[in-house]
């Protein structure tokens, strides 16, 4: 088998990876594998797939292209254009997330499980975010308890909600 990158040396480095049920194979010669980065390291971190996955999505998915609007859309904070982003697969700054949101959101739905972060919130700077999340959770639970006619538990939750609400106000 020949190297899929340069096409003129024998492929000796073979990578297989399975991402979300899809199998990708890479067949490279030693030289090209080295150029792509250290094979062993790539194996540890899977840097290969990320690029492949992204560029694949952006080049093939008409929905992404269409929603992105003009590929000349530019982030005013760092100057990156959407078409540059789709080639590199990297943003230039945090503001790019807003600037390219129309093109980015359908893409995130495909590569991630949702559009909404539910994980960790920074302790110091997160401020009231963690409290507000807890409030949402408690209010949902309160509704369930009321529906199930567990009024004692509901009363306890209501007190908890009030206490949290005052803390958020402060």
């Amino acid at each position: 088998m020949m190297c899929e990158q340069c096409g003129n040396r024998t492929a000796t480095v073979h990578f297989t990876e399975i991402v979300q049920g899809e199998k990708n194979e890479f067949h490279l010669c030693e030289t090209c594998a080295k150029e792509k980065g250290y094979a062993a390291y790539q194996f540890m971190t899977g840097a290969f797939s990320v690029n492949q996955l992204l560029s694949g999505l952006m080049n093939l998915d008409p929905a992404v292209k269409q929603r992105a609007g003009s590929s000349q859309t530019r982030c005013e904070s760092c100057g990156l254009t959407f078409s540059q982003f789709s080639q590199i697969g990297r943003f230039g700054c945090a503001h790019c997330y807003e600037a390219f949101a129309p093109g980015l959101n359908p893409m995130l739905k495909k590569i991630q499980s949702s559009n909404q972060h539910v994980g960790k919130v920074p302790k110091r700077q997160g401020g009231t975010i963690a409290y507000r999340r807890e409030l949402t959770r408690l209010r949902q639970e309160l509704q369930t308890r009321i529906q199930q006619e567990q009024f004692e538990e509901a009363a306890r939750l209501r007190d908890q909600i009030r206490e949290l609400e005052t803390r958020v106000m402060e």
């Binding site: 073979h14 990578f15 297989t16 990876e17 399975i18 062993a40 194996f43």
Partner: peptide, 8 residues
């Protein structure tokens, strides 16, 4: 995701 290095 799962990754492995494959030889010949």
């Amino acid at each position: 995701a799962v990754r492995g290095i494959y030889g010949e």
